[in-house]
């Protein structure tokens, strides 16, 4: 019985069913701030998000995100807040509308084009492989003889 209980406990731990240690609320809030910060471009940096940058403005933007989270705003509301001030530019992922759609559609189009080219190439290659190769009978005889000799 004791062995069975121990085995069950080990299994539960392995399967992750043991009660998880609760994370501190402050830590969770900070994680959310950085999650949202990763979706915003740092206005005074080059190719850095608000979460990654140490620039003063990025630090203040993270503080603004934290204040808004504490006020109960959700991610969409916070992103809309920054978008209202900076425009679509501020979003790391361009919105899926208007000319921004090109950014989303072009890679998919390129992938489809690549796939289609691959299919055409493979078909041609197969077709070429199916055509019997013409071999000179005398050459073939020489090869057979060489093989027979070992």
């Amino acid at each position: 019985m004791r062995r069975a209980l121990a085995l069950t406990a080990i299994l539960a731990a392995l399967l992750g069913t043991a009660p998880a240690q609760e994370e501190a609320p402050g830590l969770l809030l900070e994680q959310r701030v950085f999650e949202i910060g990763r979706k915003l471009r740092c206005p005074v940096c080059t190719s850095e998000s608000v979460a990654d940058s140490a620039a003063e403005l990025a630090v203040q933007m993270r503080a603004r995100i934290q204040t808004q989270l504490e006020q109960g705003r959700d991610e969409a509301e916070i992103l809309a807040y920054f978008q209202e001030r900076y425009g679509d530019w501020i979003l790391q992922d361009p919105p899926k509308r208007g000319p921004h759609l090109l950014v989303w559609l072009l890679p998919a189009g390129a992938a489809l084009l690549g796939l289609a080219s691959l299919v055409v190439f493979v078909r041609r290659w197969r077709r070429a492989a199916e055509v019997p190769v013409e071999v000179d009978e005398a050459d073939l005889e020489r090869v057979r003889a060489a093989l027979d000799r070992g």
Binding site: P43, V44, L57, Q60, M61, A63, R64, F82, R85
Partner: peptide, 13 residues
């Protein structure tokens, strides 16, 4: 000091 007005005006620098 907190650059809050900076953010409100959508400053790039």
């Amino acid at each position: 000091d907190a650059s809050l007005v900076s953010i409100d005006y959508g400053l790039f620098g």
